[in-house]
Design a protein around this nucleic acid. Structure first.
Length: 508
RNA sequence: GGCCCGUUCGUCUAAGGGUUAGGACACCACCCUUUCACGGUGGUGAUACGAGUUCGAAUCUCGUACGGGCUACCA
């Protein structure tokens, strides 16, 4: 109870950070903040063959964007460093050898070719993927089958070898998962996982246990894909540090794509992003779009992720980060996997945009407009514009279409919308309307509308038939906020100029 | 194949033995609006199947089916 809450997210820096990863970060973060604990980010880079340049920096950018920054990490420092496993290499061999000495592990000298042969030779219809396990290990080249002297000589000669855990022949290993309750495994069907690789680096299995111990991790949350190897970790804890010191486990349900587990490799093939932010593969230069660039607000992103597998038991769906911290509980996380629904994700974003203040939207929208080539942005006007179009934008990127015409006169008109009903009477109306507008001193939406309707009445034309042409003149298309509001924001000179220009286009 | 996990509307989910099985997204209709949205009202739509326990089961147990994950000197 008095134990300090310490949780960690331990990604391997091999590419983009996908939805499931961010949600794992989120749940860790929320749990830590709720219990005044620490959220640690540990880089699991023990596989040097999978090193990807820039991936670590990318992960930090994603967390920063999402507002889920760790308390301790390679970047933020902390008392339990280093936070990169490659820099902790020296820690692991000692523990692996202790396991060997205690009879819980052994040296194995099998070459990759020998392992392949084993898999091939023992493959049967009943057992399509044979494992290096208790039934096989006595047929392989390891310190269990070799004479002690021979093993020793090989080790001294520097023969390539790994250290494998010696799984008990028949034991039941069980533990209580915070989400699933009691889960048990029969050790006879778990293989002798490699703990220490030939290059001296630990595998995940050894590293996660040693580092969680050394970093005093109190609760370990990870994806459900780790459940099958949990018995290995439990046993390692038992042999090395004692079950009483083991963190509490919670295996999070998977986030599924249209066909099973969301895969990093599938990138944007689903028609929606899977990464938090744009990821450019350093080798292939291939770009995979992220939620950020797609136009998601970080608040919406974490909100929707939080609700994918968790709810607070009420009907509330929109939660700020602070509310999530207050209300989150790991016990209310679902045990079943959740299929990601992009439509609902967009709804969350829309809700957040509608609730955002104009000023908080201003920065990101301005950047988007500048990217679209608009350079004369007046901040006061932009703020008004955002207030006017906000309800119409589901993604941040929608602001470009919805507000660029405020800063740039249309160069194309939806002529189909006016042409068929266009006539001389309407043309005359707008010619007089231009003069009418010129006379307005109080340039506000209500006065413009008033003048418009009065003139329509005098000329005996239904105002409704004039509004659409007016809109096309100012906007270029059939969209946008109420047309008189647009005219008001545009200003007298610009509004009149657009009418005059459009009149020429319509005539031609 | 083996092991593990899971299964309530199309999707995300509520209901921890007693409800007309609730909400949200999406979809449909209507209202509002002579643009597009927002908003409002209503509607279609689910407990995988079979046994058992119980006065009573979506809820507990077992079996079956289906789905997913794992089965590397990757994490």
């Amino acid at each position: 109870m008095s134990k300090k809450i310490r949780v960690r997210f331990a990604p391997s820096p091999t590419g983009g950070l996908h939805l499931g990863g961010v949600r794992t970060v989120l749940y860790n973060y929320l749990f830590a903040k709720k219990h005044q604990g620490h959220f640690i980010l540990r880089i699991e880079d023990t596989d040097q063959s999978r090193y990807v340049a820039g991936a670590e920096e990318y992960i930090f950018s994603c967390l920063q964007w999402a507002g889920l920054e760790p308390d301790e990490s390679p970047l933020h420092g902390g008392k339990y460093g280093p936070y990169r496993q490659s820099e902790r290499k020296d820690n692991y061999r000692h523990y692996a050898e202790k396991l060997v000495n205690d009879g819980h592990a052994y040296y194995a000298f099998d070459t990759p070719e020998e392992l392949d042969r084993m898999r091939h030779d023992f493959k049967t219809e009943q057992n399509p993927s044979p494992q290096y396990d208790h039934s096989i290990r006595m047929k392989m080249r390891n310190s269990l089958t070799l004479h002690a002297e021979d093993s020793k000589k090989m080790l001294e000669a520097g023969t390539a070898h790994v250290i494998r855990i010696k799984m008990p022949g028949s034991e039941t290993v069980s533990f209580t998962d915070m989400i699933r309750g009691e889960v048990s495994f029969d050790t006879s069907v778990v293989d002798d996982k490699v703990l220490l690789k030939a290059d001296g680096m630990p595998t995940y299995h050894l590293a996660v246990v040693v580092d969680d111990y050394l970093m005093k991790i109190s609760h370990a949350f990870r994806g459900e894909e780790w459940l099958p190897s949990a018995p290995v970790h439990i046993l390692l804890w038992k042999y090395l540090f004692g079950l009483e010191n083991m963190p509490q486990w919670a295996h999070l349900p998977l986030i599924l794509g249209p066909n099973g587990k969301l895969s990093k490799r599938d990138g944007a093939k689903y028609g929606f992003p899977v990464f938090a932010m744009n990821w450019i593969d350093p080798v292939s230069k291939e770009l995979t779009e992220g939620f950020k660039e797609k136009g998601f607000l970080p608040e919406a992103f974490i909100n929707l992720l939080a609700l994918l597998g968790w709810n607070d038991g009420t009907e509330q769906e929109i939660f700020s980060k602070e509310e999530l911290i207050e209300k989150f509980s790991i016990e209310r996380v679902h045990s079943g996997g959740a299929k990601f629904d992009y439509e609902k994700a967009k709804w969350f974003n829309h809700e957040w945009i509608k609730r955002s203040t104009s000023s908080s939207l201003q920065g990101p929208v301005k950047i988007l407009l500048i990217q679209d080539g608009i350079d004369n942005i007046n901040e006061v006007i932009l703020s008004k514009v955002i207030g006017l179009v906000r309800d119409r934008c589901t993604l941040l990127t929608d602001f470009v279409q919805q507000s660029s015409f405020f800063f740039r006169a249309p160069d194309k008109y939806d002529l189909d919308a006016v042409k068929s009903k266009w006539n001389d009477d309407k043309k005359k109306f707008f010619q007089s309307f231009t003069k009418e507008l010129n006379a307005i001193d109080n340039w506000e939406s209500a006065f413009i509308e008033d003048g418009f309707k009065k003139l329509a009445a005098i000329q005996n034309i239904k105002p409704g038939e004039l509004q659409l042409p007016f809109r096309i003149m100012l906007v270029g298309g059939k969209f946008g906020p109420p047309v008189f509001d647009i005219a008001a924001v545009l200003g007298k000179t610009e509004a009149i100029a657009r009418i005059s220009k459009a009149l020429e286009v319509f005539a031609g």
